[in-house]
């Protein structure tokens, strides 16, 4: 499963149970629908563990924060508790905003590289 656009991309790597978001997530609420479909499918499959790689995600607007937070809530609802989120030290916004994920899923492991 993947969406590849010039400005933004998302890919689910089923071999490694890894969701990779990259580019600039600056879409309108409705434009996120295709990305939300992928995230719902991944969460509802209920994997034993999941890695969310955001190291190449340059920007996230509030609608993007909304869809990723809802994804984390859906993982929790489906008892997917072994979740590793990898952020990028170079993006200040990630250090400010990604900590919200831990409030939604306390077992989540947030790392920056």
């Amino acid at each position: 499963m993947e969406i590849i656009q010039d400005d933004y991309q998302i890919r689910f790597d089923s071999e490694n149970n890894s969701v990779i978001c990259s580019g600039t997530y600056r879409l309108t609420g409705d434009e996120y629908a295709a990305i939300v479909d992928i995230l719902k499918t991944v969460a509802d499959a209920g994997p034993d563990f999941l890695t969310i790689n955001l190291t190449a995600l340059k920007f996230l607007n509030s609608s993007g924060i909304n869809i990723l937070c809802k994804f984390i809530m859906r993982l929790r609802k489906n008892n997917v508790t072994q979740v590793r989120v990898i952020g990028n030290n170079e993006y200040a916004w990630q250090q400010k905003s990604l900590t919200n994920f831990k409030k939604l899923l306390p077992s989540l492991n947030l790392e920056f590289e």
Binding site: G29, D30, S63, I65, C69, K70, M73, S97, N100
Partner: peptide, 22 residues
């Protein structure tokens, strides 16, 4: 966030809150 999950809003209502919190 809980409201957005229930109502599936296209407008997140999180912008001002993120400016303040983050």
């Amino acid at each position: 966030l809980i409201k957005n999950e229930q109502e599936d809003n296209s407008d997140s209502g999180l912008g001002y809150l993120s400016m303040i919190n983050d």
